[in-house]
């Protein structure tokens, strides 16, 4: 399945958002997630199924003004 992760088109075997984080090596507690522009809270990641072409954002704490 091809999805868009942080602006990059990637091929993934992951079925759920939680699997995708593991597959892509994200430190799960340190990131926040959104799918197609909607926030997905941590407890909902394992129940969030990914579809072909879905847009996933995985964001981390960074510097800001």
């Amino acid at each position: 399945m091809r999805i868009n992760l942080n602006g990059q088109s990637i091929e993934t075997q992951a079925r759920t958002l939680a699997d995708l984080l593991t597959e892509q090596g994200f430190e799960s507690p340190c990131v926040a997630t959104a799918v197609d522009g909607d926030f997905i809270a941590r407890p909902l990641r394992s129940g969030t199924l990914l579809n072909d072409g879905v847009k996933v954002e995985v964001l981390s704490p960074m510097q800001g003004g």
Partner: peptide
């Protein structure tokens, strides 16, 4: 202090 959320860049670990 103010902070933001971004796709993680090179300085992400140091910032955390």
């Amino acid at each position: 202090i103010t902070v933001s959320l971004r796709r993680e860049g090179a300085a992400g670990g140091a910032f955390r």
